Amino acid sequence: MYKRVILKVSGEFLAGTQGYGIDPEQALTLARSIVAALEGTPVELAIVIGGGNLWRGARNGSGMDAATADYIGMLGTVMNAMALQDAMEQAGRPTRVMTAIQMAQVAEPYIRRRAMRHLEKGRVVIFGGGNGAPFFTTDTTATLRALEIGAEVVLMAKNRVDGVYNSDPRKNPDATRYDQLTHLQVVEQRLEVMDATAITLCMDRGLDIVVFDIFEEGNLRRLFHGERVGTLISSR
């Protein structure tokens, strides 16, 4: 059983059927599934959430200064973090939002030791604001935070995709799913697991990654109990 994990979730998971924005009911559904998976386990959970349901620098910021577009995206992740925090607490789990961009009225600043203390007290910590710098994705943020707080694994949550395939299974019915890969195989085969910076950090530090379908009932709880779900990416 894992003790401390980072769960990376997409901002799109909060969008609901409209495909954009924040749907409170969708946020509550996601929060309830996470809280139920944690029930009765000693797992300490931190979450990194994206902002693609609100803003994507490359798409929305066409013609805009790239750094400015990325900073707007970081603010979007804070909005998502606050929405998920509210949903998590409605579901009965104490939660803290910590941001790399200081905004003291709505969230705590990210301080490594404080984050670890929250986890030790059983609170779920949601990291917003990326890593505070432009030109880095939330995949990289998830990897950095995992290494900083001593997490054992990064759980890459996907929507109706149950692991890593050699091609897009939604377009190619003959796509092959991998049960296990090494970081080097992911790099060499250019598999779209996470961005190059993030996967290189994981490879250098021997940090495990699991790619799985978060909406398959029971998957997250099984992972928290150390069962094999989805695709494991490791240095072994």
Results as ranks from 00 to 15, higher is better:
L38V: 13
I6D: 10
V161H: 01
V9P: 10
V161C: 01
R221A: 10
A104D: 15
I209R: 04
S234L: 00
M88T: 00
R222E: 03
M74W: 08
I149T: 09
A146G: 01
M88A: 00
L223F: 04
L38Y: 12
I47V: 14
V43F: 05
R32M: 11
Q18S: 13
M98H: 05
A91G: 12
V211H: 11
G129T: 13
V153P: 08
V186E: 04
P173E: 11
L144H: 07
Q189L: 13
Y165M: 08
A142N: 03
P109H: 12
R222N: 01
Q85C: 06
R93G: 00
A100P: 09
S235Q: 11
A198I: 11
L14S: 07
I199M: 04
L30T: 07
R56N: 06
G73M: 05
M82G: 07
A175R: 05
A100F: 15
V106I: 15
R170T: 14
Y2L: 06
T137R: 01
D168E: 07
Q185V: 02
M116H: 01
V78P: 02
M74T: 06
T141S: 15
T99H: 04
I126P: 03
D213V: 12
Y71W: 14
D86P: 00
L54G: 05
N166E: 03
M156R: 03
R113L: 12
L184Y: 13
G150H: 08
A146T: 04
A81D: 10
A104T: 14
V164S: 05
M203V: 11
T138S: 00
Y110I: 08
I22T: 09
K158L: 07
C202F: 11
K3C: 04
V97P: 00
T197F: 15
A67C: 06
I233P: 07
A151S: 12
V164R: 02
R145Y: 09
T141F: 06
L144D: 03
S10C: 12
T77A: 09
